[in-house]
Design a protein around this nucleic acid. Structure first.
Lengths: 118, 118
DNA sequence: TTCGTATATTCGACAAATCGAATATACGAA
DNA sequence: TTCGTATATTCGATTTGTCGAATATACGAA
């Protein structure tokens, strides 16, 4: 069913359609981590991190494992990391327009400061 | 800037986080098409298609070209097609859970009817 | 048990996405 | 011009996502 597949893809994209969730996936790139460490590395509120993790869990992006007092999360399939890497290349390939786009989108907010260390 | 890159990725994902927009990108896979044909192939409302195209255009996913009376759209970078293909593999790899997930998400609506012809 | 830490869930306020209907614009043909 | 077709934009209603604050749960240690 074509529609089911598209719905599925849309779900994945939606799951990743937030900078914090992308950051979570990236921080888990090299293996599982307990929530505490994720929070610490990202510098977000505990509740907020937990909500984003819930989204990623619901969409099956991450797996989790309880160990004693804490919960370890990991990315379920390295294919997703691959997707993020492709987008990094995409970003670099269209650097100029990408920056313009981000700058534009940042209008009132402040999101962009440069493009070093990609 | 790490944050800029994540914001950029999130934008791309958000742009693709809708089945109709994924369908648009897929229908453009083999080359540009005028809006009319896109509408016809997808079977969506004209206004709705135009709105989704506006989103894809704003996020630089598609390029457009006017020719006389009509506007032709195309995917700006085949890397994105590659991403969609990766997700198809992802879907297949996790077929069982994927279907379960979709079924669950379809609860009240009806989205899933099978998984033939991927 | 009770306590402290780790994580999850709920809540209410607010922002953003989505839709169809209606309307506007662009452009070629007559 | 004026008309007809192709596409875009605006509008209001509804839904969905997001946040921080508050609260709840799970679990090991004492």
């Amino acid at each position: 069913m074509q529609d089911a597949l598209r719905q599925f893809k849309a779900n994945i994209f939606q799951a990743l359609a937030h900078p914090t969730r992308i950051a979570i996936v990236e921080v888990l790139r090299d293996g599982e981590l307990p929530v505490g460490v994720i929070i610490e590395r990202l510098g977000v509120e505990q509740a907020n991190a937990s909500q984003h993790l819930a989204v990623l869990k619901a969409k099956q992006i991450v797996a989790y494992r309880k160990e004693g007092n804490q919960v370890f999360y990991s990315v379920r399939d390295p294919l997703l990391i691959e997707v993020l890497d492709i987008l990094r290349r995409y970003f670099q390939a269209h650097l100029t327009e990408s920056m313009a786009m981000l700058t534009e989108m940042a209008q009132s907010e402040s999101v962009v400061n440069g493009a070093k260390s990609l």
